[in-house]
Design a protein around this nucleic acid. Structure first.
Length: 455
RNA sequence: GAGGUUGUAGCUCAGUUGGUUAGAGCGUCGGAUUGUGGUUCCGAAGGUCGCGGGUUCGAGACCCGUCUUCCUCCCCA
């Protein structure tokens, strides 16, 4: 009689092979973060509700997983709020903690709380799971990992430069053949709003422009109209929809278009600085592309905005990031500028799978299984296993004297590349039979030959 | 949060206008083979047909509710 088992929606189990592949991704990213001087931190998986609530826009709060009070605290439930249909207040009375929604807001809290122990500019990386009560979809889960690197306490554009290089090197090390690093600047977007006289409609303007490649020029105009932008303003923006060319052409165009906006021109100069220096020190496999339609939802970005898309695969962005001038201001620490990036490990996994880019050695490492023939087999196998492990070769002995068929099937299922046998025949002349599970070839060897072949 | 979609063995799926005892492939286990896996042959186990209610002489199939799956929005990695 079996019980029906399952896991909550939007979550996943990982089999050994998947964990190895995921760890491969995390390791490559981590090693590049460290190459650029970023240091690891960790924060709790749950925070006080007040730390998280209200930090992700109107929609955000709905997507935060809340932790129900337990024990005596349940008595704090505000029944009056419930009967008055004030659901947010009722929810707050039931819960004081919530699972983290991203790594950036907890990091801001961390910086404010530990400001006296940190040396600025502070460069940290953090690879931990986050949780969102989102509706699961292709490539979207309720529990997933983020790999973040941020610099806080410096407004130098060299930070942006290094983060672009980190995108490039990490993804190149993951053997991704082609990808585009899209770059924009929030100041340019502000400048556009300013030039067309709709400064206060910046957010509507930006989210509409962001959808250009998805809904087309007509769709954007329709959305802008429905948001109440004036016809003259929309006409003024329309050249932006169709302009093209290389990065230099785009910069020249923007300089002209934004000539009446001080902040806009400042954004253009920031973009120019970055494209210019990347030209002098070219990227490895990535292509840097200016994209003024790039906005991203997060409303705390104030300067650079990044997004990375893999070539030749149907998948949303695999990385993102940007500069946020006043993030720690939310927690009372003013004047600290930050810039950061995030790798979407789960999506990178899907891309590497779709393009078949995981190295084969990941699953087919050199490993050895010793067949268990008798109670005394261990005594004969142990010296060889000790020697193999000392050389970093992983090996094991089958724990019971099962039928050979079963022991070989175990090796086969576990993709173990060699099976070693020390049975009665081998004991007579102090030898080992070694079978290569890939080719099926089997050889009788003395101990030193055995170790020589495997190490 | 809105709209659509899905659910039958561990997995992938058949199952006729409602009709006797719900099937297949793969996987698992056992045997052919007590010193050889991946190939082959034989056999076996495994199902409250997502859950609850309703219609009917009779429901895996029809109706209602609920949960779940996947998809499109919103938003995001």
């Amino acid at each position: 009689m079996s019980v029906k088992v399952s896991i909550p929606k939007g979550t996943r189990d990982f089999l050994p092979e998947e964990v190895k592949k995921r760890n491969y991704i995390f390791t490559r990213i981590r090693e590049v973060f460290e190459l650029y001087g970023f240091e690891p931190i960790e924060t709790p998986s749950f925070e006080l509700s007040e730390t998280l609530m209200g930090k992700y826009g109107e929609e955000g709060d709905r997507l935060i997983f809340r932790i129900l009070n337990s024990g005596e605290k349940m008595k704090k439930a505000d029944i009056e709020a419930l009967s008055a249909e004030n659901l947010p207040r009722f929810a707050n009375s039931l819960s004081e903690k919530a699972l983290r929604y991203d790594l950036t807001v907890p990091f801001a809290r961390f910086v404010v709380q530990h400001q006296n122990e940190l040396s600025f500019p502070f460069k940290r990386y953090q690879i931990q799971p986050v949780w969102r009560a989102d509706r699961p979809q292709h490539g979207r889960y309720q529990e997933f990992y983020q790999c973040d690197a941020d610099v806080v306490g410096s407004d130098s554009l060299l930070c942006e430069l290094e983060l672009i290089q980190i995108f490039d090197i990490a993804l190149s090390r993951l053997l991704l053949p082609g990808f585009t690093i899209k770059l924009n600047n929030r100041k340019v977007l502000s400048g556009i709003a300013e030039v067309c006289g709709e400064k206060e409609k910046l957010v509507d303007l930006v989210t509409a422009i962001d959808k250009l490649d998805k809904i087309g020029e007509e769709g954007v105009i329709q959305e802008l109209t429905s948001k109440g932008l004036s016809k003259t303003a929309i006409e003024k923006i329309s050249p932006l929809f169709s302009f093209s060319g290389n990065n230099l052409d785009k910069l020249n165009f923007l300089r002209e278009f934004l000539k009446s906006s001080e902040v806009g021109l400042q954004g253009v100069e920031e973009l120019h600085f970055l494209t210019d220096i990347i030209e002098k020190f070219p990227l490895s496999r990535g292509i840097l592309e200016l994209d003024i339609t790039l906005a991203r939802g997060l409303n705390y970005y104030t300067g650079a905005i990044f997004e990375v898309k893999a070539h030749n695969v149907k998948m949303g962005s695999i990385c993102g990031g940007g500069r946020y001038d006043d993030l720690t201001g939310l927690f009372g620490l003013k004047g600290l500028s930050g810039v950061g990036i995030s790798f979407g490990a789960d999506r990178i996994y899907d891309v590497l799978t779709a393009l078949n880019l995981f190295p084969v050695e990941l699953v087919n490492e050199k490993k050895v299984l010793f067949i268990n023939f008798a109670a005394s087999t261990y005594l004969h196998a142990a010296p060889l296993m000790i020697a193999l492990r000392a050389q970093g070769i992983s090996c094991e002995i089958y724990p019971t004297q099962a039928k050979l068929q079963k022991q070989f099937k175990y090796a086969n299922d576990k993709k173990i590349s060699y099976v070693a046998m020390i049975g009665e025949e081998e004991l007579k002349n102090n030898s080992v039979a070694l079978k290569n599970m890939l080719t099926g070839e089997q050889r009788i060897l003395n101990h030193s030959e055995f170790l020589k072949i495997l190490c």
